[in-house]
C-alpha cells in the first residue's frame, strides 16, 4: 500500500494517468464479461447460433 501510494497516488499527474490506464482495462473487462453473460443467457437464440441453419 505504501509503495502504491508513493508511486501513483501522491502526485496528481500519476494519479490521473493511473485512473485513465485502469479505466481502459476496466472497460475491456466489463465489456467482455457482460457480453459473455449475455451470450450464455441467450444461448440458442442468437444469430450466430442459428446461422448454420440458413446458410
Amino acid at each position: 500500500m505504501k509503495v502504491i501510494y508513493n508511486t501513483l497516488f501522491k502526485r496528481t499527474s500519476t494519479y490521473a494517468v493511473a485512473i485513465i490506464a485502469s479505466a481502459f482495462f476496466f472497460e475491456r473487462a466489463i465489456d467482455v464479461t457482460s457480453n459473455t453473460i449475455f451470450d450464455t443467457v441467450n444461448k440458442g437464440k442468437l444469430w450466430k447460433d442459428i446461422k448454420a441453419k440458413y446458410e
Partner: peptide
C-alpha cells in the same frame, strides 16, 4: 499515514475509473 491515504485514494480512484467508463 501512507497506508491510510492509499486506502482513501484507492476508493476515490475506483470511483473515478467507473466515472470515466460511464462518461465515455
Amino acid at each position: 499515514a501512507e497506508e491510510r491515504k492509499a486506502f482513501s485514494y484507492l476508493l476515490v480512484g475506483a470511483g473515478a475509473v467507473g466515472g470515466a467508463y460511464a462518461a465515455k
